[in-house]
Write a protein that binds this DNA or RNA. Structure first.
Lengths: 335, 335
DNA sequence: CTGAAAGCGCTTACAG
DNA sequence: CTGAAAGCGCTTACAG
């Protein structure tokens, strides 16, 4: 289908009696143009419904103003909030977002990134998604900075990661559980070898070892509801089940609460402590009242956007850890 | 900062010993080019890390391949699922998504759409967001089709709306509640005058009138958790409270359940029926077990994408209603 | 302050 | 099947 062609700078110039270049200047803040002609141009543009073609501008300027975003499994993070904040902060800076999602976050988001590169995005933001080292370095060659959000960038150079504080969170949680008198702990990882899970598990077992307490049993919930429920069932069916379960995400923790409560008839807090990670909206709902360590999504987004807008070339991989805090709620209250 | 310039078709042509035009043809499916030269070009491109610049292509072709998307209040719909489906379906068709969100869905998304138009998007998709008639008609003038998802397009021409079946849902819900023996009903609207709420409320009161039953009390939850909780409190504090509440969204219904259960000590189902609309993921969680009328997001997305890809000019406003079904769960079970 | 002109990286008739 | 050339709608030195 043919597009009705929209007016160009040339058309506007004709109407205003100036050159096409003058029209361009009228729409370029800080360009050298007389106030009177600027006004005349703007009036003409108004009348014609002219909007500068950003594709053309991108082509000449060599920067698209577009940030490429790939979202992995959007369930693990306060996804809506993140997108909202991201969008508002970026558009305030005149940037726009070209978005992809990936079905399974296990595979690297290479296909999506390939497409993104064709649009000459100014930067790449991977939210809970991975990228192969090979493609990462191709981005670097192309001068496109890559940012990981809620994920580790790995060892490839020039990549910035912004994550929650898994280490401190894990330690704080361990401490809290022990203080509450729980002593047979289990850790439900998303994936056993996910860096975030490793850090949490390491912090947990480090604390337990220091207190001369028995190590925590480790299970895997695959970051999904069904997976978490299966893991919870398995753990709770054991002859000597744990008296507290620390889950790598709030989402899995909620599933665990439901299994414990409705399938095993356990009183949450009193008979089984459950603790999550992230402090998503549902954690504070009365039905769950989930103790958790917060992952301050807004701050994390802000951080990544700031770095992104700085537009400073990053030589070495950098990791930025945004601290959270322990939110004590009823799911780990003994009485 | 300067961008390291990426290789152009010209560079590739040089390496492969062909013209720049030949390079273009090598990357245009169906273009007239000898297989041998195509292979040579592709090899050269490979070596240089060449990717066709889609911005440039868009400029010459007059179509950007970009779909502009504005997301309003993302809480009311199974937002994640929708985005996931949308993304995968569109990228299968070689389309990409430029995304905006709007903080308050009350105001029209005009600012965002202005920006989108500057990128010469091929189509506009408003998800739970509004657009002023003025800007809508400007889109039409520019030949850009506008689609509303989960929202009515209003009377402006050339706009397609895809929505759930509020009318049938409202009727089915009314019928179900009455059959279960509830007889003092309340309807919690998002906004009193939102078209979706009107249709649901009308269907409900139509059914009640036909059955010669008393009309339902109507309250407003503003589509938000706090708003819904406040409305639920007000309704349940009355001397003669309703014995069932039909909420315009599952999200509000869940908030209502929590207020009724934890603040009023009511047994959900037995003492107070609660019913939602949409069938979001949480509705089926054991903690809520919420009866609801489904809004099949995947199908709705599929529908809107199909229409969008058809790329057929729409003369008159069209509305497509995707039927759902009643999901009977415990929240409206009397025994 | 302003215009003519070159150039951004493509596509696509038009000749050959 | 292939290349030279025009054109898509901008920006930006360069003269004036």
């Amino acid at each position: 289908l043919k597009r009705l062609h929209s007016p160009s700078a040339h058309d506007v110039g004709e109407l205003a009696g100036v050159s096409q270049a003058a029209v361009s200047r009228a729409f370029t803040p800080g360009a050298s143009i007389a106030e009177a002609t600027r006004k005349r141009v703007v009036a003409a543009a108004q009348k014609l419904g002219y909007r500068p073609n950003l594709l053309a501008r991108s082509l000449t300027m060599g920067r698209s103003g577009i940030v490429g975003i790939v979202m992995g499994n959007p369930r693990n993070i306060a996804f809506n909030a993140a997108l909202q904040v991201l969008s508002s902060r970026l558009s305030k800076a005149g940037k726009h977002m070209l978005i992809f999602t990936t079905e399974d976050s296990d595979r690297a988001a290479d296909v999506q990134v390939e497409d993104l590169l064709k649009y000459r995005v100014d930067a790449l933001l991977l939210m809970s998604a991975d990228l192969s080292p090979k493609l990462a370095s191709r981005c670097q060659d192309a001068g496109i900075p890559v940012f990981f959000f809620n994920r580790f960038g790995g060892k490839t150079g020039g990549i910035v990661s912004v994550t929650g504080d898994y280490r401190n969170g894990g330690r704080k949680i361990a401490q809290h559980l022990v203080e509450q008198g729980y002593h047979r702990l289990a850790y439900m990882a998303g994936l056993k070898n996910a860096p975030a899970d490793r850090e949490r598990a390491t912090a947990l077992s480090g604390y337990l070892a220091k207190q001369k307490l028995p190590a925590a049993q480790i299970v895997t919930g695959h970051y999904q509801r069904e997976g978490a429920m299966a893991a919870a069932r398995a753990v709770l069916s054991q002859p000597l089940p744990p008296d507290a379960i620390f889950c790598g995400t709030d989402y899995m923790a909620i599933a665990t609460i439901e299994v414990a409560r409705f399938e095993f008839g356990l009183k949450i807090g009193r008979e089984l402590g459950v603790i999550g990670f992230g402090d998503i909206e549902q954690a504070s709902w009365r039905s769950f009242d989930l103790t958790t360590y917060s992952q301050p999504v807004s701050i994390m987004v802000q951080k990544v956007v700031d770095l992104l807008l700085e537009d400073r070339p990053v030589a070495h991989p950098e990791r930025i850890v945004v601290p959270g805090e322990l939110k004590c709620r009823k799911s780990t209250q003994r009485d």
